[in-house]
Amino acid sequence: MNDFLTIAMPKGRIFEEAVELLRKAGYKLPPEFDDSRKLILDVPEESLRFILAKPMDVATYVEHGVADVGIAGKDVLLEEERDVYELLDLKISACYLAVAGLPNTKMNDVAPRVATKYPNVAEAYFREQGEQVEIIKLNGSIELAPIIGLSDRIVDIVSTGRTMKENGLVEYERIVDVTSRLIVNPVSYRIKDGQIDELVRRLHNVVAVEEF
């Protein structure tokens, strides 16, 4: 198992784009890869093992070293602050983190409340703006919060903006742009340097080509 490189992949939206990117980089991934329900997929021909995790958990697996590398959104890295190397911007799954709320509203003066899946990012952002806010942690459907009066604002991922629009919310501020990153465990980075350098080189070539 030692010569296998374990890659933590995010399930869902980013997965397909990440698989496509790996294929473009010349990794031969079997066709059944795309719709398998397995959580662990071995590709012995490439000495790769994939583990499929919740996007928010990818950095956790990599930090603890049970995965050598991972593909994680910058939003996850900002929120989780895991001790991992962020080696490459893969430029896939582009979106951004934003502050949103009902149109023409102001935040409560006494106790401004912000609902979010990203409590650390939200708190740090408002602190930098010189505002102390109360964070309410939600796990999904964040758009509900201002509509039904749970919070004044939300901090959430925006990719097309459709969900927000359909729910009558407007964007107030853009916090940071988000793309997926290649992350690496610090020990693997040194011990499996050959395999990892090769992966970075091949992915980098694909990403660099797509840019032009």
Partner: peptide
């Protein structure tokens, strides 16, 4: 310097 062993995720 840091010391790494292959099967442990931390130095």
């Amino acid at each position: 310097y840091e010391v790494y062993a292959g099967n442990v995720g931390f130095p």
